[in-house]
């Protein structure tokens, strides 16, 4: 039976991959213009034809949107998995420890200060903001040399809210162009186009494989300082690299879809239940679950009351916030 369960865990990754593909194809048919599966497949075969309306809708609107959503959801989830492990805090998640709002605020600044900046400037600026915000939250949470999980979460939520409010304030005063270019920061995949995919993809292709390669070091770090160091881990360096990685993943994702609330919290928790907390399985499972979660949320967002759009981030928050409250209670009781 043990062997069977171990086998099941290995099968989960292909199953989730299959799930993502199915969800992605199903999502292509949903929106203001509904298409049956047959119509979707026919339109996919006809993409080159500029006169095919269905093909245009798929290629110009839905495909980039689904891809951006999946990619950013995956990055939020991987970021959450890494932060939770390294900070050894189940409540850590990019949008709870200030990273997401810091990245969003920095993205606004970047676009106001450097309107002519190349495509890559926005993610880079966002990473800088994400990291500054995280350092701020972490320093504020230290008390007598240690960081309590609940304290980190509470201070993180406060800083996150403040930075987010600041971002909205600045956007209100900013030029219309800037404001329009950054409306997605509220957490919606609406309007995601191929350019947004090209903005995020190179960073994703760098950061995700890097995280997967470092799975063993992430495992050792999640044992805590004493054990990690006695096993021969260069603690300061290892932790810095892991945190930079976790922060960068979420910050780049913010420039794709804005802040998708709680994806970075729920997806890794679900992944841990499915495949254990070892990163060689946890990371792939988190990536896939994060992608599925966001594609499903975004499909509901445009399918529930067409042609109106609900921000996908609203839906993920509706699911995630109660879970966060439950988790706070559990962690609070454990202490």
């Amino acid at each position: 039976m043990k062997a069977a369960r171990a086998g099941l865990k290995l099968a989960i990754i292909p199953l989730l991959t299959l799930g993502l593909v199915v969800v992605g194809i199903a999502a292509l048919g949903v929106g203001a213009v509904r298409m049956s599966l047959a119509e979707v497949l026919q339109a996919l075969g006809n993409l080159g034809n500029a006169d095919d309306t269905h093909g245009r809708i798929l290629y110009d609107l839905r495909m980039p949107r689904i891809l951006v959503g999946a990619l950013c959801g995956a990055m939020f989830a991987a970021s959450g998995a890494i932060l939770q492990g390294v900070v050894r805090n189940p409540l850590a998640s990019p949008d709870i420890v200030g990273v997401a709002a810091g990245a969003g605020l920095a993205a606004v600044f970047t676009l106001i200060l450097l309107p002519q900046a190349p495509l890559w400037a926005l993610p880079v600026g966002a990473c800088l903001g994400g990291f500054l915000a995280f350092v701020l939250v972490y320093l504020l949470s230290i008390r007598t040399g240690e960081v309590l999980p609940i304290r980190l979460a509470l201070i993180g939520v406060a800083v996150e809210a403040s930075l987010d409010a600041l971002r909205r304030l600045i956007l209100v005063r900013a030029d219309d162009g800037v404001a329009q270019a950054l409306t997605f920061l509220v957490g919606t995949v609406y309007g995601a186009d191929w350019e947004r995919l090209w903005r995020v993809l190179p960073f994703a292709l760098l950061l995700i494989p890097l995280a997967l390669i470092l799975h063993q070091k992430l495992d050792v770090l999640s044992f805590g300082d004493s054990t990690a160091k006695s096993l021969g881990m260069r603690l300061e360096l290892g932790r810095l690299v892991a945190l930079l990685l976790g922060v960068a993943l979420a910050s780049v994702a913010v420039t794709g879809t804005g802040i998708l609330g709680f994806v970075g919290l729920i997806a890794p928790h679900a992944a841990r239940l499915l495949v254990s907390s070892r990163f060689h399985l946890l990371l792939p499972a988190s990536l896939l679950l994060g992608a599925i979660l966001v594609v499903v949320a975004d499909t509901l967002a445009r399918g529930l009351v067409p042609p109106l759009e609900i921000p996908a981030g609203l839906l993920t928050t509706l699911v995630g916030a109660p879970y966060f409250l439950y988790l706070m209670r559990r962690v609070g009781r454990a202490r």
Partner: peptide, 20 residues
């Protein structure tokens, strides 16, 4: 530190492992 880890091992008080 990896060289040291091959020469001495320490079991800290109340060590914690990742879940599962």
């Amino acid at each position: 530190t990896k060289v040291v880890a091959k020469k001495l091992a320490i079991l800290p008080q109340m060590p914690q492992a990742p879940e599962g």
